[in-house]
Design a protein around this nucleic acid. Sequence first.
DNA 1: TTACCTGCAAAACCTTTGCAAGTAC
DNA 2: GTACTTGCAAAGGTTTTGCAGGTAA
Lengths: 133, 133
Amino acid sequence: MTDPKSTRMTKQRQVILNELRKVTSHPTADNIYDMVRARMPHISLGTVYRNLELLARQGDIQKLSIDGDRVHYDGDVSEHYHIRCVKCGRVDDYPVEANISTKELNQGCGYEVAGFKLEFSGVCPKCKKKSLS
Amino acid sequence: MTDPKSTRMTKQRQVILNELRKVTSHPTADNIYDMVRARMPHISLGTVYRNLELLARQGDIQKLSIDGDRVHYDGDVSEHYHIRCVKCGRVDDYPVEANISTKELNQGCGYEVAGFKLEFSGVCPKCKKKSLS
DNA sequence: TTACCTGCAAAACCTTTGCAAGTAC
DNA sequence: GTACTTGCAAAGGTTTTGCAGGTAA
């Protein structure tokens, strides 16, 4: 896939973006496919993937791809961090300040450092309850 | 796959561990398959995956699964961080101190926090050169 | 009008798994 | 002897892609 020179706001793209901005649940591509199909039954999964990729490249959404498991998407592009449940895979926002300044980054091993990813892991409230019973 | 009650040090497992400890290159399962096949031509890729999983669960090696791309493995289990080249996917050690204390972690959003993953991204020296020409 | 985009289905890709034979302990 | 492990090959699940017809600007 090569980058297009310009992009168009198609109905599909708009609906995907809307649905994603509407929730705080960090859905996977498949989740988003389901959400969007409720409004647009004939959309294809391929289109969902193509648009998520494009929107992420444009900076309209965020791709959360930490930890091997499948990719999650976030309509909130402001700087914040996440926590993933090791039992069920659920992803939530995690309010913490990371004092890693990007200024001090360009010092190691010859890389042109661009940024970092930080993700927490743990057991979510629901799974905590479940393991008690 | 359920955890075995005890594990045996098979030749395959030993060679995989040796090869991984020998390098600092953070290879993927496929890379390791190639490395091991040089010494043990009949080993199967399935065996490599099974052993990497098991060794990681035992804490003998580290699984680096940040950032969507395929999983890399690290024979060095001491605490340190990594940087991944956004162009070629290469993974190197990145010497930085992260002052995120695990004590302050159990405060957010009802999770039982277990840990965090931190990975840097940038352009590696080779790819920097390439993009200049 | 013309890139860009879509739906569909097939392909690609990495990883996991079932099974019968082999092996560490 | 008996779990644990292997090689092989097939299956699994997610993501990507080719193509011909559609559509935003």
